[in-house]
């Protein structure tokens, strides 16, 4: 992630389209490939996970992304994190990104928690010295002092998620990207995470947040973006958008 300078915006998504080729069947072996090619059946169904989406996020804003399952919310976050590349259009981000798409995604089962802290830090682009300096802070926040030398495979999912969250949010990133990761862990830890996010927001971090719970979107975000089948249905102040969205859901159910 190369840091470009831009004073006003944190994220600029410009007419971005993400296309998946869904092959009629998944072809991942050579025999099928050649057979299909010979029969001229290498047909791909195009599927646009995001269709010509544009939006801009100013520094310090918080945006919730809402929509039904399969509407392209997670695809949007993955695109902003550069995991997916847009097929058309462009995405620009300004500043450091902390992706919380899945906590502890970079953990290696056989390594101990201590070793994983360094590995996961490196995945996020921090060097050993930096991790050394913040090590205590991470362990304190995750409250895992007694389990540091235990391999991660013996951790419960909640414990691993705590560790993942502590590492990812150790530094105040410029942009925090959050995909319903807080659903794991006990209530006490969830509260702690929410406090941490509030602190970050107070210090000027931009937030992109995906959740199915309208309640948490309303409480965390000022703005919202409503996606449906990869298209933007509405964007703007969270109350307006969520009202439209709820109305739409009600109509659909009727």
């Amino acid at each position: 992630m190369i840091e470009n300078k831009n004073d006003e915006y944190a994220v600029i998504v410009d007419h971005a389209t993400i296309r998946f080729n869904i092959a009629s069947e998944k072809i991942d072996n050579l025999k099928e490939y050649f057979v299909k090619m010979a029969k001229h059946q290498l047909m791909f169904q195009e599927f646009l996970a995001l269709d010509d989406v544009s939006f801009k996020v100013k520094k310090g804003e918080s945006w919730g992304i809402i929509g039904t399952n399969g509407s392209g919310k997670s695809t949007m976050l993955k695109m902003v994190c550069r995991i997916l590349k847009p097929y058309k259009g462009s995405v620009q981000t300004f500043g450091t990104i902390a992706p919380l798409i899945e906590l502890g995604a970079g953990f290696s089962e056989d390594l101990t928690a201590r070793e994983n802290i360094f590995l996961n830090g490196a995945v996020l682009g921090y060097d050993e010295k930096f991790m050394e300096a913040h090590f205590q802070e991470i362990v304190d926040f995750a409250e895992l002092h007694n389990f540091l030398d235990m391999p991660i495979k013996n951790y419960s999912s909640g414990m691993a998620a705590r560790l993942g969250f502590s590492i990812a949010t150790m530094v105040n990133p410029d942009i925090l990207i959050c995909d319903e990761v807080l659903a794991v862990g006990d209530v006490a830890f969830q509260k702690k995470c929410e406090r941490r996010m509030a602190e970050m927001r107070a210090s000027g971090t931009t937030l992109l947040f995906v959740s199915h719970s309208m309640e948490s979107v309303r409480s965390v975000c000022e703005n919202a973006l409503w996606l449906s089948h990869g298209k933007v249905m509405a964007m703007g102040k969270v109350d307006d958008v969520s009202e439209k969205y709820m109305k739409y859901l009600d109509e659909g159910n009727r």
């Binding site: 992630m1 190369i2 290696s108 056989d110 390594l111 070793e115 360094f118 590995l119 830090g121 490196a122 995945v123 682009g125 921090y126 060097d127 050993e128």
Partner: peptide, 20 residues
């Protein structure tokens, strides 16, 4: 620049393989 940023990751991954 990208390679430089991810040098720590490269070191950690090599270390991990050898350790394990």
């Amino acid at each position: 620049e990208v390679l430089k940023k991810y040098m720590p990751l490269y070191r950690q991954l090599v270390k991990k393989d050898i350790k394990l």
